[in-house]
């Protein structure tokens, strides 16, 4: 699905990622953990193609193609989805309108027919119910005045409608209480599929109790310093990042 080789990236001329290599197979869930400032969010922005994030060295291959050639929206239509840590408010655009615009923009980009209003409504209602997203929320402008939990549920709802091949979940657990976390994790788990890979970026091990990864990587100072199975997360929880980053140095 995704192959990152010796990736170096800078923001405003400051190097943040300093040689990351990572291979993610179809259907795999990889967790990337690390302390603040380790480059976790930079990695997700680089994958999404955000401008101002400059790749200085290395390569990213997605489904056998050079990902860096594609624009932000081309990546989206090719199946890359970023669940934002801080979803942006879109004033005046209802959640429903936004969802429909996004789904149809991607369908159009892939040369598929747009969904008609009736079919779409049915689909949204079904998915919304699973995520405990109320009808009222769909009528409100996206993310405007949403609670932390509502924002993350809205992100998960978008993911379930857009059916991405590679989902990058950036600190999805931040700002969530345990009940909200469970709802969101349930939604994500339901989307696990043999043809869908995920990168779960998190600071805490807590989220990984609910979304259980196949592989765990520890990121520090722009490099992956350790990789392992899900037990690595538990080890981190016990010893903290400091031990690990120091022993690596």
């Amino acid at each position: 699905m995704l192959e990152i080789k010796d990736l170096h990236a800078s923001v405003d001329g400051t190097p943040i990622l300093k040689g990351i290599s990572l291979t993610i197979g179809d259907g795999e869930v990889h967790a990337i953990m690390g302390p603040n400032g380790s480059g976790k969010s930079t990695l997700s922005n680089v994958l999404a193609g955000r401008e101002d994030y400059e790749i200085t060295k290395g390569s990213i291959t997605y489904k056998g193609k050079d990902l860096t050639e594609l624009s932000i929206e081309e990546r989206a239509s090719a199946g890359i989805f970023l669940a934002f840590q801080y979803p942006t408010e879109i004033p005046g655009v209802t959640t429903m309108t936004f969802l429909k615009t996004a789904v149809n923009a991607q369908r159009k980009a892939r040369g598929e027919d747009e969904l008609d209003a009736v079919k779409f409504l049915k689909l949204v209602r079904e998915k919304a119910k699973e995520l405990k997203v109320e009808e009222d929320m769909l009528k409100r402008p996206l993310n405007v005045g949403f609670s932390g939990g509502e924002k993350k549920r809205a992100e998960t709802l978008q993911m379930s409608l857009l059916q991405p091949s590679l989902a990058v979940l950036d600190e999805t657990d931040s700002g969530l209480d345990i009940d909200a976390l469970k709802i969101v994790a349930d939604g994500v788990n339901r989307l696990r599929a043999p043809d869908r890979s995920m990168i779960v970026i998190t600071h805490y091990q807590r989220l990984l109790d609910y979304i259980v990864p196949d592989h765990v990587h520890v990121l520090a100072k722009g490099k992956i310093i350790r990789s392992g199975g899900k037990e690595l997360a538990a080890e981190l929880e016990a010893s903290g990042y400091t031990d690990m980053t120091e022993s690596a140095a």
Binding site: S71, A76, F81, L82, I90, A102, A105, Q106
Partner: peptide
């Protein structure tokens, strides 16, 4: 960025916003 990450091109995003 948010809109484009969801698949809208730049002009669609501006029009929507």
């Amino acid at each position: 960025f948010y809109c484009r990450q969801r698949g809208l091109d730049e002009e669609e995003a501006v029009a929507l916003l």
